[in-house]
Simulated assay, not measured.
Amino acid sequence: MAIVLRYVDNKGFVVEAFIGLVHVKDISALSLKKTIVNVLAQHSLSLSYVRGQCYDGASNMQGDINGLKMLIKKESKSAHSIHCFAHQLQLTLVAVSKKCVQVGELVLLVSNILNVLGASFKRKDELRQSQKDNLQKALDMDEIETCRGLNQELGLIRAGDTRWGSHYKAFQNFILLLDSIIDVLDTLVEDANTLDERAKASGYLRSFQTYEVAFMLHLMKDILGITYDLNISLQKREQDIANAMILVEVAKKRLQKLRDDGWEPLINKISMFCIKHDILIPNFDDPYSNSGRSRRKIVDHTVLHHFHVEVYIL
C-alpha cells in the first residue's frame, strides 16, 4: 500500500510527502487502518491530526459501514473523505451512462468482442497483421498521410468503469480498427474450433456492422473526447477546487455546443464512415423498428426521430 501525506508547513504552504510503500498481508479495512495508524505513529502523528482522507473506489476503502474511511472517521470526526476530482468525474459518468440502454449495449458488445479477439495469441497476431495490411493498402492509395509519429500500431483497449477514460480510447480504436476487427471475426467464423465460438463470432460480426453501432461509437467518442480532456486536466498536480470548477464549466459548455450544433457534422461523419465500410445507411424517413422490442409494440416515430431525439438529444 502506498501512503502519501499532505500537510501545511510552518510557512503556510501545502506540501505532499510520499511516506513509502507498506506491505499489507490482509487487505481488510481493519488491517489497513492498523497499518496506517502504525505508520503515522512512526512520524509522531495520530489520527486526531487527520483532516481529510482519499482512497480509490474499492469497497474495503469506501464502504459506508465498515470501510477504511468510516473506521478512521469514527476516531477523527474531522477526517472527511473525498474522491479526487478525476475520480468523481468518472463515477458521475458511469452512473449517468448506465441509464442509457444504447450505451450499455455498446459497452457490452465492445467488451464481448475484446474477449473474443484477446482469447488467443493467434487472434492478436491476426489483428496485428490485418492492421499492417490495411495500413499498407491505404498508403498505396494515398488515403492517409505519412509523417513521423503517425500511423502507429493500435491495440484494443480494455475498458473499465473506474477508468472511464479507457472507454474513450476503446471506442476510438474500434473506429480506427474496424476493418481489421471484421477481418479477424470473419476468419474466426470460418476456422473456429467449436460451434459456440463460430456462433459468437458470427453474432458479433452481424451486430458490429450496423448503423446503430456506428452511430453510438462516433457519438460516444465525441462526448467522451470532451470529458477525457477534462479528466486529464483534473489529474494535474497543481489543480485546485476553484480551477477545477472552471474546467467543469468549460466542459459543460463544450457538451452543450455539441448538443446544439453537432448533429449535422456527426451525421456527415457517420455517413462517410458507413460508406467506407459498406454499412447500410437507413432511410431517416422510414418508421423506426426497434430490434430489441416485440414487433407487436407499434412504433409511431421515424428513424430520424429515434437517433436525433431519443438518442442524441435525450
Score class of each variant (00 low, 15 high):
residue 107 V to D: 07
residue 108 L to G: 07
residue 108 L to Q: 13
residue 108 L to E: 12
residue 108 L to K: 15
residue 109 L to Q: 08
residue 110 V to N: 06
residue 110 V to I: 15
residue 111 S to A: 14
residue 111 S to N: 13
residue 112 N to G: 06
residue 114 L to R: 07
residue 114 L to P: 01
residue 115 N to G: 15
residue 115 N to P: 08
residue 118 G to C: 14
residue 118 G to V: 10
residue 119 A to N: 11
residue 119 A to G: 10
residue 119 A to P: 05
residue 122 K to V: 08
residue 123 R to G: 07
residue 124 K to L: 12
residue 124 K to F: 07
residue 127 L to A: 12
residue 127 L to N: 12
residue 130 S to C: 09
residue 131 Q to T: 10
residue 132 K to W: 12
residue 133 D to G: 02
residue 133 D to S: 12
residue 134 N to M: 01
residue 135 L to C: 08
residue 135 L to K: 10
residue 136 Q to N: 15
residue 136 Q to P: 04
residue 137 K to S: 11
residue 137 K to P: 02
residue 138 A to C: 10
residue 139 L to D: 01
residue 140 D to K: 15
residue 140 D to R: 13
residue 140 D to S: 10
residue 141 M to Y: 01
residue 142 D to V: 02
residue 142 D to P: 00
residue 144 I to A: 02
residue 144 I to D: 01
residue 146 T to I: 11
residue 147 C to K: 15
residue 149 G to L: 04
residue 149 G to F: 08
residue 149 G to I: 05
residue 150 L to S: 10
residue 151 N to A: 03
residue 152 Q to P: 02
residue 152 Q to H: 07
residue 153 E to R: 13
residue 153 E to G: 10
residue 154 L to Q: 04
residue 154 L to Y: 03
residue 155 G to Y: 06
residue 155 G to I: 04
residue 157 I to K: 05
residue 157 I to M: 06
residue 158 R to K: 14
residue 159 A to L: 01
residue 159 A to G: 09
residue 160 G to I: 05
residue 161 D to A: 12
residue 161 D to M: 07
residue 162 T to W: 14
residue 162 T to R: 08
residue 163 R to A: 00
residue 164 W to S: 00
residue 165 G to K: 06
residue 169 K to Y: 14
